[in-house]
Design a protein around this nucleic acid. Sequence first.
DNA 1: GTGATTGCAAATCTTTTGCACTAAA
DNA 2: TTTAGTGCAAAAGATTTGCAATCAC
Lengths: 137, 137
Amino acid sequence: MNLSCSLSVFERLKIADLRPTRQRLALAEILFIGEDRHVTAEQLHGEAQHREIPVSLATVYNTLHQFTEAGLLREVVVEPGRSYFDTNTTEHHHFYEEAGGQLCDIPGSSLNVVCLPSPPAGMTITSVEVIIRVARR
Amino acid sequence: MNLSCSLSVFERLKIADLRPTRQRLALAEILFIGEDRHVTAEQLHGEAQHREIPVSLATVYNTLHQFTEAGLLREVVVEPGRSYFDTNTTEHHHFYEEAGGQLCDIPGSSLNVVCLPSPPAGMTITSVEVIIRVARR
DNA sequence: GTGATTGCAAATCTTTTGCACTAAA
DNA sequence: TTTAGTGCAAAAGATTTGCAATCAC
């Protein structure tokens, strides 16, 4: 279980040093209450509207990036021209189904990259990402 | 060594069932003569202009996608909103340096993903990609 | 109050598209 | 000649930005 589950969204924003504004609180609630999620900006905006929460798309973009910078989200790039944001910030990898645009976690324990190559001279590794593309059989 | 090294770009296009037009021949020459490369559409277009080869950007995009479909190139997505095309179509993975936008091959032999997880029900794995993000120390 | 945040619309950037023109077979 | 390929300019889609209005502290 994730320790952060026990934090209210309000507390999360406080810890991240982000003012708990109406918009940020509402988006954080959509994102962090319940199961882990993978959303695009457009999707999150649509969901907010569905819940009758007035937020502009620009603010959704800003918020997603602020959350990412604060370590509350992780950005996943699997498709040219569209970013996904993952509420699971622990080390893990992804399945991606292109046709449906579905991104899905691979539990950290079920895949391991062993024996990493050494990076080019003067460089350090900042992250290792595995994307397993899948298709309907 | 790559067998395809011995094919002229003309033959390559023929085999791929693409008419060897002036533009395609010129772009293929930039891409396939010499070392393996990672280029964006914009970069390739710039390079063509540099060599005084008149090609429109739209044609560069078309050509990159046709080459990719024909298996002459491989598309690599590491950054939101920009695609790279890799002339190395063999199975291998990448280092990516965000700051400089530099993509670099990891020799196929020096990294192996062992023990793949089983895909979601009804799905088959189409590809496995590892991206190791690096930064200047 | 004061500085951070928001919303809007316009701008930007990459990529795609429609269509008349050109070139390869 | 016939069909595929090209170039241009316009369109599309995702994202960002500038700036005045608004909100949290």
